[in-house]
Design a protein around this nucleic acid. Structure first.
Lengths: 215, 215
DNA sequence: CAATAATGTAATCACTGTTTACAACTTATG
DNA sequence: CATAAGTTGTAAACAGTGATTACATTATTG
């Protein structure tokens, strides 16, 4: 983890303000969620006046978007890594690996997941990198689904609907956790992460064509 | 729809302030989402000073919680009505009816759905009525699931996981729409509501034990 | 070196949630 | 009925917010 502490600059110019502001915002997010971020506090932590951030970010949303870009990049690489480390070449197992890595990251980084998925916090349209990373994850899912269908491993032929269902299931599990609607559904003796993974595996069994009836 | 316009009161006391503040907050939500709500603006629209609302609500969250209670009540009755109007007594059809009514309401009332489902906006713990309405919906789902299992209509025997999967799917579809992640998944020529319903039906087919392979 | 662009500061604006001292009205009680 | 005790409003203030503006300082470059 790269540390970029306030460097008590002596020169008038900061030299590194953009990055330090993003780091400060990330820190604030981790301390108290996205609501805890204020441009002024980020500026204060960077050792700079309240107006300075606006030389680097058009508005608060732009700062939050930069935070989201960082988070999204980590999110994507965690998923990409997970899929590359899958032993089998079974596309359904590959899809499951994506989902499990997705849920793992979301549950371990709830506030960051909230930021990258909540529209009102960031300016999705303005960020090339956000769209690119998001598309990469989507393509991973689609690729494994298409291959699964070609190998006749899917129960249904409507791949589009299966894909949206898969996305909605994973997104829903992550969001339920983030929004605090998980405690009431949690299975006794299991962590949220375990429960989410089990439900995902359950779903994977459901869409599969192996004739199994689940557990 | 009950109208409670600002009544240009002549007396010192308002007489109806609590309800009028809630209505004003609802109006603000409908005009610009939950971010558009401010206690001061609600007070202004009620024709009252900025401090007055705090005689009726401990803080802004309490006001938003009251808004959420209203919304949740409508949400619940829409779902309850839908389930009562289901012709067949097939529990899986009943579950589908719950899901469809759920999605229908969420997509047609996106900002209100956002309020009732986003934890940071409201004080869920303090509201008896929120918990009661939420539990009622949950019980509807559980009831139909249990009955489906008893009649051997489900593919899997792990009813808890099937139930969480169902909840996550529906919640995920609704949240994807609210969070703006639906455009990229939408099926051409279909509205969001149609797509969501089709995906739900797809899921219902998947969990069913009728040997069908979906479409 | 001088002109120019980039990046900081200080002051200010309008707005927010919330609190406090006080005023007006309503209700319960002697 | 009078008066004491709530209840519910107002006015003024506070600290915090995002954002803009005029200005100062520094870096870059012709």
């Amino acid at each position: 983890m790269p540390k970029a502490k306030t460097p008590r600059r002596t020169s008038y110019h900061h030299g590194n303000l953009r990055e330090v502001l993003i780091d400060a915002a990330v820190q604030l997010v981790e301390e108290g969620g996205s609501d805890n971020v204020s441009v002024r506090e980020a500026a204060k932590r960077a050792g700079v006046s309240p107006g300075a951030p606006f030389r680097h970010f058009a508005n608060k949303t732009a700062l939050m978007t930069a935070v989201a870009e960082q988070a999204m990049s980590r999110f994507r690489s965690e998923i990409t890594n997970a899929v590359e480390n899958v032993a089998t070449d079974n596309p359904i197992a590959r899809f499951a690996a994506v989902g499990i890595a997705y849920l793992r990251w979301a549950i371990r980084n709830p506030t960051h997941f909230q930021i990258i998925s909540t529209r009102s916090l960031i300016d999705w349209d303005s960020s090339e990198s956000l769209r690119r990373d998001n598309e990469a994850v989507r393509a991973l899912v689609e690729g494994s689904m298409v291959e699964a269908q070609q190998r006749h491993l899917l129960r249904s032929n409507d791949i589009a609907e299966t894909q949206i269902a898969a996305r909605a299931l994973v997104y829903g599990l992550a969001r339920m956790y983030i929004d605090g609607h998980f405690a009431q559904w949690a299975v006794a003796g299991h962590t949220a992460e375990q429960t989410a993974q089990n439900v995902l595996k359950h779903f994977v069994t459901l869409i599969g064509n192996d004739g199994s009836k689940g557990d």
